[in-house]
Simulated scan of single mutants.
Amino acid sequence: MTTDLELLPRVKLGEWPTPLQEARQLSERLGTRILVKREDLSGLGGGGNKARKLEFHLGRAIAEQATHIITTGAAQSNHAHLTAAAARKLGLQVHLVLNGQSDLPRTSGNLLLDQILQAEITFVEPPISQSNQPYMNDKMREIAQDIAIEGGKAFIIPEGGTDALGTLGYIVALQELGSQLEQLDPNVSRVLVAVAAGTCGTFAGLISGAILTSFPFKIDILGVSISGKTEIKKERTVQLVNESLELAGSSAAVTTDHIWIEDRFIGEGYAKMTKEGSEALRITAQSEGIFLDPVYTGKAMAALINKGRSGELSDYDAVVFMHTGGLPLLFHYGSE
């Protein structure tokens, strides 16, 4: 696949390719061949999918001679932690704008890792009269202005690393996965790739990659929603796919009719554990020795287990579960 991606600035942050592992006991349980793409073993910080996105973001940041990296997320954000780890790896300063109270305990999960990395953290609680993300974005811009006054140059990365630039990382990942599948089994004809869908950047990148990359088998992409409204997620995914395709030099485009989202496993909302997710977490650990997290991968695996039990996966020669990381979150949710 030769596209404009190769012309864009990029830094190496992870160890690629990540393993594609057979999940034999899980396959027996679900009646379908299950493979796990171990993005949690990316080799940066606590591991996870954000490393691929950050390769493009920080490639541009360095090209623009940034001295500081600013990003935002929830208090226990995987993305914020990996951004801090990536910035440190490249010798850059990092400032995290996290949604929460300043007196939150910092001794567990991603917050503990942020502390070890000595990331500067600003906790903010948007006023009730203002929506969350625009307020957080305004706060990041304020901090960037302060850094400029002090003689530095800040590069802002959006929540989740989710924009057209970050989405490119999962176009590359899809190409990598397709090559691994070809080598693993030349007779595969139809594959399902399932991934948690939060800010939808990874999901959109996989869809874009499936459009751009030609393999001798069909690849379907399923996004398992972990929060929010499905129609908003579909519209956001379409925007990301079309923008990333354009950035990659393609004239292809999609509509919401092309977007497949499973939204029955959200539970009470973002960062809220579910009974099904907890069960999926335990089944995966006890079957494969692989640990998921309660916020993203646990809910995504819950959807996959449900579909396997109901026979919905029988049309596929293989089902690939994208393990997007999040292990540090387990130690934050231990009491639950």
Rank of each mutant, 00 (worst) to 15 (best):
H79N: 06
A86R: 00
A66Q: 03
E64C: 01
N99C: 04
A66G: 05
Q93I: 05
F56A: 04
P134N: 08
P126V: 09
S131T: 11
V94W: 03
H81C: 08
A66P: 08
L117Q: 13
V124I: 14
A63M: 01
M136C: 00
N132C: 12
I62F: 08
I116T: 13
L98V: 15
V97W: 00
G73V: 13
L58G: 08
L117I: 13
F123K: 01
A119V: 03
I69K: 04
H68A: 14
T83C: 13
L113T: 01
A75S: 11
F123W: 03
N132R: 11
Q118K: 14
G48M: 03
G48V: 08
G59W: 02
P134A: 06
H81Y: 12
S102E: 10
S129V: 08
L96E: 15
L90C: 10
L111R: 14
S77H: 07
I116N: 14
G73K: 02
E64S: 03
I116L: 13
H81T: 11
S131F: 01
E64P: 00
A87G: 12
T71P: 02
A119W: 05
Y135N: 01
P127L: 05
L98N: 04
E64H: 03
I69Q: 08
A119M: 09
I121V: 15
A119L: 10
F56Y: 06
A87Q: 10
A86K: 00
I62P: 01
G48E: 09
P105G: 15
Q118G: 12
N49H: 09
I116G: 09
I128C: 10
I128T: 14
I128A: 15
R106L: 10
G73Q: 03
A86E: 11
H79T: 04
G48L: 05
I116Q: 14
Y135S: 04
S108E: 14
R88E: 11
L96C: 06
L90T: 14
E120T: 10
A74I: 09
M136G: 02
E125P: 05
N99A: 09
N110L: 05
N49S: 07
P134S: 06
N78D: 06
H79K: 01
A84M: 00
P126K: 04
S131K: 01
A84T: 06
G100Y: 03
L113A: 05
P134E: 04
A87I: 10
P127R: 02
Q133D: 12
S131A: 05
E125I: 01
I62C: 09
A86L: 10
L112W: 13
V97P: 01
H95V: 15
